[in-house]
């Protein structure tokens, strides 16, 4: 299984029935491909929709209906539209059950940096700061390393997105959860030993007993 599919499938299992979910750009977008549609989950697009669906059939796109990445989307039955103030009201107001985002770095405290690299062109935070600050649950879905360097670090050196602690980190190697006492390694990817995960991780990982393998449900 390719790393992105593994991450997306594992994250999909964290989504509760009938919840409101916002998926970021990149790997997080793939999560909806592995979700059982009978769960009745609604996806938010922060540009103003609840109930976003897949890309419309060829030739059926409409320029009035796009997601937060500007891509053409469709609606599922029961969808609704919102203005930007209402949309971010949902996000900050505790109505968004889950956001899944990518990251440049996450640290042992669960702090996330995903919007700026000093000295490099930074287009802007867009909705990321509101999403991380306001969502009931924040999951970071990302590859474990970038250019061979661990993205899971003792302390973020890049500008933070929020001071809020994220709830779960899912990579192609592991599932980790930041707690008061540090970063706990909860699960390892199929056939990946704990030693390999430690080797690939700059942050200190806490384990308690045997670390189980990720259990992946059959694809819906």
């Amino acid at each position: 299984m390719n790393p992105k599919e593994l991450i997306a499938r594992r994250v999909a299992q964290e989504i509760a029935p009938r919840s409101l979910v916002n998926l970021g750009i990149g790997i997080p977008t793939l999560v909806s491909d592995y979700l059982d549609e009978s769960l009745g989950v609604f996806f938010q697009a922060e540009n103003g929709a609840v109930g976003m669906g897949h890309r419309p059939p060829e030739g059926m796109t409409d320029r009035h209906l796009t997601d937060a990445g500007g891509r053409f989307v469709s609606f599922v039955p029961g969808a609704s539209t919102l203005d930007s103030a209402f949309s971010f009201g949902l996000i900050r107001g505790g109505h968004l059950d889950l956001t899944v985002l990518g990251a440049l770095q996450v640290d042992e405290k669960g702090h996330l940096a995903n919007w700026a690299i000093p000295g490099h062109y930074t287009p802007g935070m867009g909705g990321a700061m509101d999403l991380v600050t306001g969502a009931k649950k924040v999951i970071v879905a990302m590859q474990h390393t970038a250019k061979g360097e661990s993205k899971i670090v003792p302390e973020c050196t890049l500008p933070l997105t929020s001071q809020r602690q994220v709830d779960l980190i899912v990579t192609e190697l592991a599932v980790m959860k930041p707690e008061e006492d540090g970063l706990h390694l909860l699960e390892r990817a199929p056939n990946v030993p704990v030693e390999v995960i430690r080797e690939m991780t700059a942050a200190t990982l806490i384990t308690s007993g045997e670390v189980p393998e990720m259990q992946l449900n059959a694809c819906p």
Binding site: E46, A85, F88, R92, M125, A128, D130, T133, S162
Partner: peptide, 26 residues
């Protein structure tokens, strides 16, 4: 931040002196 941007605009539009948001703290 996008949510702050739209609320700052809304504040001006609805006669509020400003907004208090948790977004961006820290």
């Amino acid at each position: 931040p996008q949510g702050t941007l739209v609320e700052r605009i809304r504040a001006a539009g609805v006669g509020l002196g400003g907004i208090l948001t948790p977004t961006g703290v820290g």
